[in-house]
Amino acid sequence: MSALIRPGEVLDNRWIEIADDADLPASGQVILSWARWLSLDGQIPTGDLQIGLRLPNTLDVVAHASQLQSHPLLVLDFPSFADGRAYSQARLLKARLGYRGELRAAGQAVVRDQLQSLQNCGFDSYQLRGDQDPALCIGAFADFSASYQPNLLAMRKRLRPGSHAPLAQ
């Protein structure tokens, strides 16, 4: 099982992935696929069960916002190293929809070299790809000490007179 991290620490993963054909437990914290969630059609066992969702990266999160907001965990999927669709899903969930739960990145792109971009798009936790060294990865959120994005406030401040002087060339 791969490690779950956030900046500076390795986390205990209390969430259990439930296969689409497995029975739901009566309690605990489980992650269901989006397809499984849809198939439940609102028939959720009453009790202590907390349900997180794993979303396909093709899902229009804005169109399904009402079904997503109440879940305490959303897992966004990176099916390959170079497929960046879930970056946009993350920004829409956090910046547009104000999602307050835990946003977790999982899949082939959750590697040392993409962690800081993932963080800048609003992810809270990272299910590392199996080959990744968690000890190295928890420190990989500081490759860059600054960023031009996601908003222009930093740029605006530094462009104003008296803030940051141009360097000699």
Binding site: D83, G84, S117, Y148, Q149, P150
Partner: peptide
């Protein structure tokens, strides 16, 4: 250029 440089959302188009 600055907006596009290391834009975290658009680096894997």
């Amino acid at each position: 250029r600055q907006w596009a440089t290391f834009h975290p959302e658009f680096n894997w188009l």
